[in-house]
């Protein structure tokens, strides 16, 4: 599926650098960023919050039957990562041949996420790398 270039461009800060947000009223932190604070449930001041990218594997799986867009990458690990700041985020876990386990420490790396054929855009993003 080809995506509009604007669709991913508008998320570049979040996708490159794990930039989420933080409610200035209750200090709840979010990644990906939320339009309003889920905890407060009303409009509060939301400030930019950059997450360091360190965390650990909370759960994971190895995708062996991928969506069409990831056909050539399969099999690959994905996981729910608990960031050290608290939020949980889903993402790829790089496979360096070592066993991935619940609790494996990871950090955010910078990789190609998806390439739109031979002539389309290349979408870059964080992936998690076992430390």
């Amino acid at each position: 599926m080809e995506r509009s270039s604007a669709r991913l461009w508008r998320k570049i800060r979040a996708r490159y650098n794990l930039v989420g947000n933080e409610c200035q009223s209750c200090k709840s932190e979010y990644f990906p960023p939320r339009p309003i604070c889920k905890k407060c449930g009303k409009k509060t001041e939301m400030a930019v919050k950059k997450f360091a990218g360190n965390g650990e594997v909370y759960s994971f799986t190895k995708i062996r039957v991928p969506p069409d867009t990831f056909r050539e990458e399969a099999p690959y690990y994905v996981g729910v990562i608990k960031l050290e700041e608290g939020p949980m985020v889903e993402g790829h876990i790089l496979d360096d041949g070592r066993e991935i386990k619940i609790g494996t420490k990871v950090r955010a790396a910078f990789r190609r996420m998806y390439v739109e054929g031979d002539e389309g855009l290349i979408h870059y993003q964080f992936k998690f790398e076992p430390i």
């Binding site: 995708i63 729910v80 996420m113």
Partner: peptide, 18 residues
């Protein structure tokens, strides 16, 4: 989720793993 290459079996697999 989907753009991250996470399929529906993938989501339930992570629930199962946990």
């Amino acid at each position: 989720e989907l753009f991250q290459g996470i399929t529906f079996p993938g989501l339930y697999a992570m629930m199962a793993k946990r």
